[in-house]
């Protein structure tokens, strides 16, 4: 269960404080999936970063089970990301110097949850069997995003946060990646929170919310 309560966040700019989130409330049940939509600059990615523990709220609270993110220190937040969260970015953010198979296992190994059978299952489901010894730069965009998905799910996180995961892919590849993601989520109790612009993508998820001017519409 993820609970976001009355979250405020603003950033300092040369023109003064820029309020990005202005009292956001959100609840997402375990195993559920939610599409977070909104225009550019509406605060979607900011909210995602706050939930991932990549940034801290100005006020309000973010809770998941026994975890209260607003009261965690840097090391605790790092541990939260390592053990509870899977992150998928629009730009894939793979480790260019590691082979595909090492990229896949990377976070699971960091979290101490590396499971060869689960990884083999992911490899098979994601169709990465022939690509394991390649480096990320030798893959297409769709293949890289599949590796990024695999890496995020390999550690069996409680919460998968995806920031425009299909944003840099063409329509067919995007559909393919999304299908794989949702199929894999069926096999796990992982909760999905996805930031997306696409109505078509959002329609595939159980819940949809729209963020506008820092508030949920």
């Amino acid at each position: 269960m993820l609970e976001v309560r009355d979250v405020f966040k603003s950033y300092a700019t040369p023109q003064g404080l820029l309020p990005v989130l202005q009292g956001v409330d959100l609840t997402l049940g375990a195993g559920g999936s939610l599409a977070l939509m909104g225009e550019s600059g509406s605060g979607k990615s900011t909210l995602l970063h706050l939930i991932a523990g990549l940034d801290k709220v100005d006020s309000g609270s973010i809770r998941s089970g026994k975890h209260r993110l607003e009261s965690m220190n840097e090391a605790q937040l790092a541990n939260w990301r390592r053990t509870e969260i899977g992150l998928v970015f629009q730009q894939f953010n793979l480790i260019g110097s590691l082979r595909v198979e090492d990229n896949l296992a990377f976070q699971a190994r960091l979290a101490g949850r590396h499971d060869s059978r689960w990884q083999a299952h992911l490899v098979q489901r994601l169709g990465l069997g022939d690509l394991l010894t390649r480096y990320p730069e030798q893959l297409s965009g769709g293949q890289q995003q599949r590796v990024a998905l695999g890496r995020a799910l390999a550690s069996q996180p409680k919460l998968l946060l995806a920031d425009e995961p299909t944003g840099s892919l063409d329509e067919a590849t995007s559909d393919d990646v999304l299908r794989l993601l949702l199929e894999l989520l069926d096999d796990t109790p992982t909760t999905l929170l996805m930031v997306t612009h696409s109505q078509r993508v959002a329609a595939r998820l159980a819940q949809r919310v729209v963020l506008s001017n820092g508030r949920l519409a």
Partner: peptide, 16 residues
Amino acid sequence: RGLLRTLRACGVSARM
């Protein structure tokens, strides 16, 4: 830079 950010995002603390 990218690698360091990915590592941080994957849960490696700045100190480590």
